[in-house]
């Protein structure tokens, strides 16, 4: 399978802090790739550089052969982004959020309306169509963020903690969707703290800590390598990143 995302020597400094400190990985077409790490590891910073929301301090990222440094617009046209922080437009209803967002991708109104309706059904948002965003529960907001990320029919989906704060039902529903999209050949980058989520969804993953990759492989490989095939990915995670609290 051809490489869709290629990250080389990626760095981000915030003053003295090296939030991302030289990481490399590649994601093939159709793969679901996990970015795991404790709080403050540099997951969101990596995602933001990939989605052209942050300039790089060093290295490069290419998406579909386009560099985020040279052709950010080209990259952004093929990305679907579900951010960690909810940034829906509070001034608009559910439907209008999707319509306005689709405009940014040059999608004509009639087409946008079709796509929005399809996504509204798929993510079970129809009860709340005309509701202002602040009336929605956390789970619904995440579902709407997911729907919004798909409005431009992206080739690459970037999900930054898509299930954090969700109840088991909503979480399962998001998992179903990610699986479904994977079977449609969508390439996905997923960050998460839920190790079972990574075990369930990710073909391959990297574990990062303090801006550096500490381990990579398939979930099976990691369990095999570090625990002789006994135990689960969470034990591997704790073994590699230690038990102390982060971001203090």
């Amino acid at each position: 399978m051809p490489t869709v995302i290629k990250v080389t020597g990626l760095r981000k400094n915030y003053g003295e802090l090296r939030a991302v400190d030289g990481i490399d990985f590649e994601i093939s077409r159709g793969e679901c790739f996990g970015l795991l790490g404790p709080n403050g590891a540099g997951k969101t910073t990596t995602v933001k550089m990939l989605t052209c929301a942050l300039p790089l301090s060093g290295g490069d990222i290419t998406v579909g052969g386009m560099s985020v440094n040279k052709d950010p617009r080209g990259v952004k046209y093929i990305l679907g982004v579900c951010p960690q922080e909810v940034n829906l437009d509070p001034d608009f209803s559910v439907l209008k959020n999707l319509i306005v967002y689709s405009r940014y991708f040059d999608i004509p109104y009639a087409e946008a309306k079709n796509r929005a309706e399809e996504l509204i059904n798929r993510f079970h948002l129809h009860d709340k169509l005309e509701r202002p965003i602040e009336d929605l529960s956390g789970g619904l907001k995440k579902r709407l963020l997911m729907a919004r990320a798909l409005i431009n029919r992206p080739k690459v989906l970037v999900l930054d903690e898509p299930t954090t704060g969700l109840d088991p039902q909503s979480r399962r529903q998001i998992w179903e969707e990610v699986r479904g999209m994977k079977s449609n050949g969508l390439t996905t980058l997923l960050t998460t703290h839920y190790i079972e989520e990574a075990e369930l969804l990710c073909d391959r993953l990297v574990i990062i800590d303090a801006g550096k990759i500490v381990e990579q492989g398939t979930p099976k490989e990691l369990i095999q390598k570090h625990l002789d095939g006994k135990g689960n990915l969470e034990d591997v995670f704790l073994k590699l990143t230690g038990k102390h609290l982060r971001d203090e």
């Binding site: 052209c52 617009r73 952004k76 951010p83 940034n87 437009d89 509070p90 940014y104």
Partner: peptide, 14 residues
């Protein structure tokens, strides 16, 4: 507060 720009910056708008 609304993080509107954060949402739009990952679309094709510069």
């Amino acid at each position: 507060y609304q993080k509107t720009f954060d949402a739009v910056i990952t679309t094709p708008l510069s």
